[in-house]
Amino acid sequence: MTGLDVVFVLVGLLTAAGAVLTVTSKNLVHAALALAVTLAGIAGVFLVLHADFLALVQLVVYVGAVAVLFLFGLMLTRAPIGREALDSQNRGLALAVSGGLFVVLSTLIVLAFGDVRVDAMTGPGIDVIGIAIFAVWVLPFELLSMLLLAALIGAIVLARREDGESGEEAEVTRIEVGDPPINESDGPPAEVAGDGQAELPAGSGGGGQA
């Protein structure tokens, strides 16, 4: 069992190093990649604790999906990245809060499970989970596919580009009097009513870029 302990400590150290790198990195993208390392390390911790399905879920959902969403969110919103150095002014407060949380949680865990001895770590394997899904929980399983379908359609409805809306030019363009607003037929009613010139945010109509 000592070999497992060594592996557990090594994986834990890797996870902790990734977590520290996440909060100390000056570059947002590097921080997101360090977060992916941290989440993968947590998957390793699950694996050492004999929870292979949980490790798989952690790897696929967190490292695969959540990290991808983080990176996409960064690249879509915080551009240009890498130029500015991240420097939070709340560093002391954040350290105090996270340190306090760590002390409270570790104290609670030690108080609750400190005298519990686990000789052999065993748990239900993936096959047991599979049998349980298809023997007992078939209806929730099928309902889950409807939930995922609803999420998929909702995302498409929110993010879909409307017809005739270019979605490329996001800056404000000036339109001279007399020019009929092209490609704005389904946008908001343009305020080009007579006065000199109106500012039209092109491509902002219809919530196409939600």
Binding site: A65, A159, G167
Partner: peptide, 29 residues
């Protein structure tokens, strides 16, 4: 610079990936 804002339309591909990623979880058992 090499850091530039990506097109918003990539996001729908990321989201489709996430949905089918969750589906793949249930394929394993």
């Amino acid at each position: 610079s090499g850091w530039s804002q990506t097109n918003i339309r990539y996001y729908i591909f990321a989201f489709l990936f996430v949905i089918f990623d969750v589906e793949a979880i249930f394929l394993f058992p």
